[in-house]
């Protein structure tokens, strides 16, 4: 499948009334979310981020991924063309209750974050039999 590539980074939506105190831009990373019987896998493109600069928080059922990007400084160089902007990444997701919070696994490789969110044992086996009358 040849999908159209998004050329421009998408800026993160800011909630009404909440303003950032830093001048840095904030981008919403593009994600793939795949579900199978074992759980969810969330993959996010966050170039410029490594395992030390990514933060994942889970508060109640709100999952937030955040990645800090160091500004690029090239002394004695001047920027002659800029086709993309630099900034941090943030995106928030709502999780269902069936995720086993203690077994969430996160890895970062080549600027790609991979989050494995396993389903809890009880959710896996929860099958409701329907009886015929």
């Amino acid at each position: 499948m040849e999908a159209v590539k998004e050329i421009q980074k998408k800026e993160a939506d800011s909630k009404e009334g909440i303003e950032r105190t830093r001048a840095k831009k904030l981008y919403a990373p593009p994600v793939d979310i795949i579900e199978d019987e074992k759980g969810l896998t969330l993959i996010a493109d966050m170039p410029g981020v490594n395992e030390g600069s990514v933060e994942i928080t889970l508060e109640k059922n709100i999952l937030t991924i955040y990645g800090a990007v160091e500004p690029e400084v090239h002394d004695s160089y001047r920027l002659v063309s800029a086709e993309y902007g630099l900034g941090d990444y943030q995106r928030t997701f709502t999780l269902s209750d069936e995720i086993d919070r203690d077994k969430i696994l996160a890895t970062v490789k080549n600027g790609v974050l991979r989050l494995v969110l396993p389903k809890s044992e009880s959710a896996k086996t929860r099958k409701i039999p329907v009886k015929a009358e």
Partner: peptide, 28 residues
Amino acid sequence: RSEAEFPPVNTWISSDDSVVTTEIPGVV
């Protein structure tokens, strides 16, 4: 919006050389 435009690059120039950066996460 052709392939030719992707990926976006930033270009920096000094008197001796140029630095070109591009974000291509996940590419090996």
